Computed example of a mutant assay.
Amino acid sequence: MHLRPVQFVDTPIGYEDNSVARLAGGLQWFAAYEVIEGRARRTIPVADVATLGERAAHLHAAIIAPRARLQLGERTLRFDQPIIAGILNVTPDSFSDGGKHVDDPAAAAAAGIDMAAAGATLIDVGGESTRPGAPAVWEGDEIARLVPVVERLARAGAIVSVDTRKAAVMEATLAAGAHIVNDVAALLWDDRALDVVAKSGCPVVLMHSPDPKKGGHGDGGYTNVLTDVFDWLETRIAAVVAGGVDRSRIIVDPGIGFGKTLAENLALLNGLAIFHGLGCPIMLGASRKRLIGALSNEAPVDQRLAGSLALALKGAEAGVQILRVHDVAETVQAVKIWRGLRDQSLVGG
């Protein structure tokens, strides 16, 4: 069984007790669940979830529970409203901005600091492209690209996440001042990765892909992409917790664009609220991705801002806690407008 929050409401004011529920302690409220059991789907009022048994009770509790704050040294990450993660690539071949900051750590760090000034809560730094067909990068080269940038950002007071699959890179960048590991392979690419994260105590982003050890862009063979991705992440969370990582330090990412067709990506985006049932903050990385071009006359990567903003707001509407984006200032402005609209509707009138 899976539960997806549906029938979102502007405000809980005026509803009977227990007839609406707050989504993950955030700004969204909802009145019903879509109950998914195999191929069968039905909608029930939130108040009726208690009639569905232990599995439903577990999912409901996870869906409505506020997400724990993350204390990162002197900084705190809160998840009661959407926050922005700015994407900073120091690669020669990333699909969107490869080569822009390669071999110039000072300029790369300055770009990250500009993102923070524009409203990014954290800076996600990557030193290896994970686009389809990208060549693997030797860990020594990846460390050389990342560490000087991470050191500068950390000294400037930024919260830094590092986008890497390699244990040695995790160790080096955490030592350089990074706070979070963002692993597109969900700690499966490198056999030491789970141990490194567990021993460091750092938060970790676990992203879904069909075959992490082969790059994550294969055929998923999904029966139902929404529930299949949910189940994969649920299993992976359990394994990572068993490996010594505190569950409250785990963030999940459904992996838009990794081993999914256009239709499957759209199904995930339309069903994002289901992932609150995992009980972890959700990261959404859809910025400038191929699906935007596919839906907009093959718009090139540098002309996908409007589509990226549309998907960011789709995430905000679904209660996503972290929006991972290239265009920070524009996304921050869009989310501020969305937040203003939500604040007004929540108070009613």
Rank of each mutant, 00 (worst) to 15 (best):
A198F: 13
W189H: 15
R152N: 13
S200A: 15
A172C: 07
A172S: 06
A154W: 14
D195Q: 15
S161Q: 03
M170R: 13
H208M: 01
A156M: 10
T173P: 11
P210H: 07
R155I: 02
L153S: 00
N182L: 04
V205C: 13
L153G: 01
A198P: 09
L194K: 04
C202A: 15
E151T: 14
D191W: 07
A167T: 08
A193N: 06
T173R: 11
G201F: 00
R165D: 07
D191I: 13
K213M: 09
D183S: 02
M207G: 04
G177Y: 00
G157C: 11
R152F: 15
R165Q: 11
D195W: 09
D183W: 02
M170L: 10
P212V: 08
H208D: 07
A156Q: 05
V196K: 05
A168V: 13
H208C: 02
L187G: 01
A156H: 03
R155D: 05
A158E: 14
D195M: 14
C202E: 06
D211Q: 12
S161A: 12
D163R: 04
D190I: 01
N182S: 08
D191R: 14
G201R: 06
A193K: 10
A168F: 08
V181A: 06
R165N: 07
A156K: 12
A172M: 12
T164L: 10
N182R: 14
V197C: 05
L174S: 12
A186K: 00
L206P: 12
G201D: 00
D163Q: 02
R192T: 00
R155H: 07
L174K: 01
D191E: 14
G177A: 12
C202P: 13
V197W: 03
P203T: 03
G201W: 02
R165L: 15
A185L: 10
A186D: 00
S161C: 03
S161I: 00
P210R: 08
V181H: 03
G177M: 07
D195L: 13
G201L: 04
D191F: 11
P210G: 06
G201T: 01
H208N: 03
I180K: 06
V205Q: 09
A198L: 09
G157F: 04
I159K: 00
V205N: 08
D195H: 15
E151I: 06
S209R: 03
D195T: 15
A198Y: 15
K166E: 09
V205G: 10
R165K: 12
T164C: 09
A198D: 11
A175I: 12
W189T: 08
P210V: 01
A167D: 06
L174Q: 07
D163V: 01
V162G: 00
I159W: 10
L194A: 11
W189D: 10
V205A: 08
A156R: 09
A178I: 15
V196A: 00
